[in-house]
């Protein structure tokens, strides 16, 4: 008994036919991301809810003090937990499917392996005490593209999070409550953003492989229907400094190198937009907090 989502031939053909005529079923341009709505918790640092269209997830960052790994005494520990439950969709059954593992791997490569979080800044007492930052991704609603939304949510939550301030007395440390001393934001070295492109072959396999023309359709940020009917996908992770963090085209429809290069260059525009979105949202939130919690009274500097 399979819990996979079944799409009728009619729906499939309808989608491909409309793509052939140059429009998506939701009337979005091929290279546009869906509408994004963000919620940053006003009470808890590090909890965010992100929705891209109908795909919704919640992300939380927590920090605890622990002992570092023996072979890395100067670095903190950073883990990302991303488990998908059947709440998001019946497709993600209790047994871990390949799809789920791929999503977790790509987000891990994009955020953890690329050192977006400075692990050395998490060190408190070398070899004895370091911060352990844990990111929990809770997928709530699945409407395609968990990778991009997941990565975006992780970066937003990391920016939003502030760890408690600490003071060191010889060999013991004092962790100050957030109401006692202002908590400290994390040191984030760069902001990786993932973009998933989905490919559709409108002719047959042979013309795709043997043919000269690049006749494949390419969509950015596929929703559920588009994702189930795609012939291949490419995940490009870039940051604003024009650095490619990772590329994943795990098989799927072959595309020409020329088209591939064009896609990577075209992505920069969306990467810039999304990075700016994170930064402005965090800044807005900071200003709002400043006003509502009267931080001005806590400042010790004088107006010049």
């Amino acid at each position: 008994m399979s819990r996979s989502i079944e799409i009728s031939e009619n729906q499939r053909k309808f989608l491909l036919e409309s793509l052939k005529h140059g429009f998506r079923l939701t009337d979005r341009p091929f290279d546009h991301v869906r509408d994004i709505s963000l919620y940053l918790s006003p009470t808890e640092y590090g909890y965010v809810e992100v929705s891209w269209g109908k795909t919704k997830l919640a992300c939380r960052v927590t920090a605890t003090v622990t002992t570092p790994y023996e072979d890395r005494p100067f670095e903190g520990i950073f883990t990302i937990n991303s488990e998908i439950s059947t709440m998001a969709s019946m497709r993600f059954d209790t047994s871990r499917s390949n799809e789920e593992i791929l999503i977790a791997r790509i987000i891990e490569k994009a955020v953890r392996r690329s050192n977006s979080l400075d692990l050395e800044s998490l060190c408190i007492i070398a070899g004895e005490k370091v911060w352990e930052i844990t990111v929990d991704l809770n997928y709530l609603n699945y409407d395609g593209n968990f990778i991009d939304v997941g990565c975006f949510a992780v970066m937003l939550a990391l920016h939003h999070f502030k760890k408690p301030d600490i003071s060191i007395n010889g060999n013991s440390i004092v962790v100050h409550d957030i109401n006692e001393r202002q908590p400290v934001p994390l040191s984030i070295l760069h902001i990786p953003i993932c973009l998933t492109y989905s490919f559709y072959n409108l002719t047959d396999k042979e013309s795709n492989i043997k043919g000269e023309d690049a006749d494949e359709i390419c969509l950015l940020d596929a929703d559920l229907l588009e994702e189930l009917n795609r012939d291949g996908s490419l995940v490009i992770t870039l940051n604003k400094n024009r650095e490619l963090i990772q590329l994943s085209k795990n098989g799927g429809l072959p595309i020409s190198a020329q088209q591939f290069l064009e896609l990577t260059f075209k992505s920069m525009k969306t990467i810039d937009q999304l990075t700016d979105l994170i930064k402005t949202k965090i800044k807005e939130h900071e200003e709002l907090r400043y006003k509502t919690e009267n931080f001005k009274l806590l400042e010790a500097s004088a107006d010049r």
Binding site: M1, R60, N81, E83, T86, D136, N138
Partner: peptide, 22 residues
């Protein structure tokens, strides 16, 4: 699933996920 089936009533699958961690 086969192992969950009960002959004369519905079976319940309850999953609780915490806010933090696994």
């Amino acid at each position: 699933k086969q192992r969950q089936e009960l002959p004369n009533q519905a079976s319940l699958e309850i999953i609780i996920r915490p806010a933090k961690g696994l």
